[in-house]
């Protein structure tokens, strides 16, 4: 351990960002383990984990900006994660629909023409 002492406000800010981020990431993973079917499980990691990691990275930005020189480059990871999370969610949803995975019984299908969505080219 080699952490520098922070001034009071920064200490609280970094600590709360890290704790909130860690909680969100944990909740996302609990959701991944606990929700009943694949489409529902898809919701938890794409939203909560991304935000959780975003919180930790924001904490890291504040920490390094206060202790060392002004440092923004961790922001790149956050931006990248927020850009890519919907894309991987979309691809995995497509894969799940393509393989026709089991859904929980109370899933309602409200599509007017379900046959218009298959991905046969």
């Amino acid at each position: 351990m080699n952490m520098t002492e922070l001034p009071g406000w920064a200490d609280w800010l970094v600590s709360s960002l890290i704790i909130i981020g860690a909680l969100f990431a944990l909740i996302g993973s609990v959701g991944l383990a606990r929700l009943p079917d694949f489409m529902a499980r898809l919701h938890a990691p794409t939203k909560s984990t991304t935000l959780g990691v975003g919180g930790v990275i924001l904490g890291s930005i504040v920490y390094f900006s206060v202790t060392a020189t002004f440092s923004w480059h961790e922001l790149l990871i956050t931006i990248f994660l927020f850009l890519t999370a919907p894309i991987s969610a979309h691809l995995l949803a497509k894969a799940g629909l393509h393989l026709e995975l089991k859904r929980v019984e109370n899933t309602r299908d409200l599509r007017a023409q379900p046959n218009q969505y298959s991905d046969e080219d």
Binding site: F24, I27, G31, P36, A40, A44, R103, V104, N106, T107
Partner: peptide, 22 residues
Amino acid sequence: SNLNIAAIILMPSRRIKPALIE
């Protein structure tokens, strides 16, 4: 949205109402 999802995940009952919407 994350607060909503967290509430759904931590809900004791598993009764969620998923739907496919157009």
